[in-house]
Design a protein around this nucleic acid. Structure first.
Lengths: 364, 364
DNA sequence: TTTGAAAATGCAACCGATTGCATAAAAAAT
DNA sequence: ATTTTTTATGCAATCGGTTGCATTTTCAAA
């Protein structure tokens, strides 16, 4: 649509392409000619079709190997109408968690002969919709999506639903009858983290969470509240902050905490970055961790292991999530598994206890 | 090559594909029929070919839009023999730096209408070769590569060189007459970091570096040595460690340091992870940073900002590197820039000074 | 040896866009 | 009004596999 033409007089001349010393690709026709058989048989042999005699098949495959034959994906896709390509849309590529997820997907996809096309929404719904569009146009066989922060509708995925192209959400999911979701049990994880703080003697626990239109954050608040409930502690709205979970948000939260009259004695943050920056800011202000205020985060980011004290957090199985998502999608594509009615896969997460939440000393 | 067949009696039945409520794609033929013109003209109009009358073109494009026409990439690629796809091979996706690089590439590629296919070599040359192969078979238009730790030959890239498919190395590069490399000036950056330590009064500076068959690490040692040279300090081989730069390597290095009789008074590590784990281990052993031993790292990993004290390091422009690599490649593909003889692009990096290298107090 | 079913192979029509060349239409020159 | 040039369009071949159906080959049963 937006090609440039600066052709002087002749049309068809391909000025833009560097001409190379003609390097003809081997096609099935070459093999067919060589063996004096039909291209159809060659095609079938190369695809291990059972209707080809073993001997013929071997002869063909051997020659193919010898000649360095490479199947032309385009011809094949054109005819078969599938691409062996999986689209991945994530809010942001440059995070430890996300890159781990993608590493897992890549692993599985490659092993199964699929390619990954990756794009990022930069947490913008507009961009997300744009990416979805591109993926649709690229005719991906399936889509793996972690929703942007802003996304509050799935309308832009309609083309996929309509066409029945498999779509799987992971991590930042939204429920939809036509697609599977892969998550950890955020509620339980948050519950565990909160309960751990409670068990260790903390009572005024603040929660810093993200926008609850996101499933992930909504569940985490729930878990937090549930744990408090189990301890018969009423939820104090002043102790529940909703922020964008950035580093800056952590700093801001710290400043907010410093101004509170009865300060919380612990903070459970819905991610590590926010927890860490909050913690460090408070530390700088003279508070001791965990004596004055304990901390728990979420994600097990590499950072959480190197701050002092180490941050208690939830280990979030990124690699496994990527593997699971890709595996499920490929199973759907190959018909091994068909979509069930409600289909959410929950991965095991784990509470990692570090110094930031050590048992509270007496008092309280 | 490895498809499964469990067909009972009939061959051609497509058991594997979920049948959907027939959703015919619009093709140029549909448009042509509708407007009673030839498909050739439609094709040209959609590509903004100048030989189509403005009015006709508009009519065609409008109808295309209205019908929701989507160009079939496979047909197009099959005919045109190019894919608008860029292959990316990296040692490891799950690092902050690498994901940042890829974010940069993705940005540029998408804007220019290219797709990215990404794969990881897991630092293994075998896997790298395997990935190169897959990329070749996928007929990527070009390749962006950061070499694995093990890679000591470029033989597996031969098919690309032979066929004249543009190949650009970034970060972990090796020189080759046929391809461009994009790096930071590792030597200068290392020089700057070392000089900074020297300027601040440190004299027995240890260097922890990676395998010097890698350009990156070789340059960093050079910079380190050069800075010492400028200060007329002889290089003490006992102070130059070669490790695999993992977290564990940092811990090991720390244990090594603790056993040394005249201990170094500063460490310049070729990456942050190693520096940080070394630093923390020493800290645990009772050494004070930077009073007893100062530190400088390399990469400006998010971790370096949250350890205490903050780690002095080199800011490594991942995003910019990704953008640059993708831009260069696309320019080569579109013929805007042709490969020069020797072509290395050097990106600006920056020394970030934090607490781990504060000026040495008197003495020495 | 004949016959019939099963197993292999071939034929030819796709898939949808691109493009060299020929031709038709429009504009300019004579 | 006629010829020449320029500009638009169409024709038809091509890209390389895939696959329904027809045809041939093989091989065991009669």
């Amino acid at each position: 649509m937006h090609k440039k033409y600066f052709l002087p007089r002749l049309y068809g001349v391909d000025y833009l392409r560097t001409t190379m010393p003609e390097y003809r690709e081997i096609t099935i026709y070459d093999i067919a000619r060589e063996l004096a058989i039909s291209p159809a048989t060659v095609s079938r042999a190369l695809n291990n079709h059972p209707a080809v005699k073993k001997a013929t098949r071997k002869k063909i495959q051997d020659l193919a190997r010898q000649l360095g034959y490479r199947s032309n994906t385009f011809a094949s896709n054109l005819r078969k109408k599938n691409t062996h390509t999986i689209g991945v849309i994530v809010p942001r590529l440059s995070s430890y968690f996300m890159s781990t997820v993608i590493a897992g997907m890549e692993q599985v996809a490659r092993a199964e002969g699929y390619n990954l096309i990756i794009s990022q929404s930069s947490e913008s719904m507009i961009k997300e919709a744009d990416n979805v569009d591109t993926m649709f146009n690229s005719r991906v066989d399936g889509l793996l999506v972690s929703l942007s922060y802003e996304t509050d509708t799935l309308a832009h995925f309609e083309p996929f639903f309509k066409k029945g192209i498999p779509l799987i959400f992971f991590d930042r999911i939204r429920e939809h009858k036509q697609c599977m979701g892969i998550v950890i049990d955020n509620q339980k994880a948050a519950y565990d983290a909160t309960k751990h703080l409670l068990d260790n003697g903390y009572r005024r626990i603040m929660h810093i969470g993200g926008n609850p239109i996101s499933h992930v954050y909504a569940e985490r608040v729930k878990g937090y509240k549930k744990a408090l409930g189990d301890y018969k502690i009423p939820v104090d709205p002043k102790l529940v902050l909703t922020r964008n979970m950035s580093e800056q948000a952590g700093v801001d939260a710290a400043e907010h905490i410093l101004k509170m009259k009865p300060r919380p004695d612990a903070v459970f943050s819905a991610n590590d970055a926010c927890a860490i920056y909050c913690m460090l800011t408070l530390k700088k202000a003279g508070l001791r961790i965990p004596e004055d205020i304990a901390f728990a985060g979420f994600n097990n980011d590499p950072m959480s292991k190197v701050v002092e004290p180490g941050l208690t957090t939830i280990d979030y199985p990124g690699y496994a999530m990527g593997e699971a998502a890709a595996t499920q999608l490929i199973n759907q594509l190959t018909g091994i598994s068909v979509m069930q009615a409600t289909n959410i896969i929950i991965l095991r997460s784990e509470l990692i206890i570090r110094g930031s939440s050590a048992k509270k000393k007496r008092k309280s």
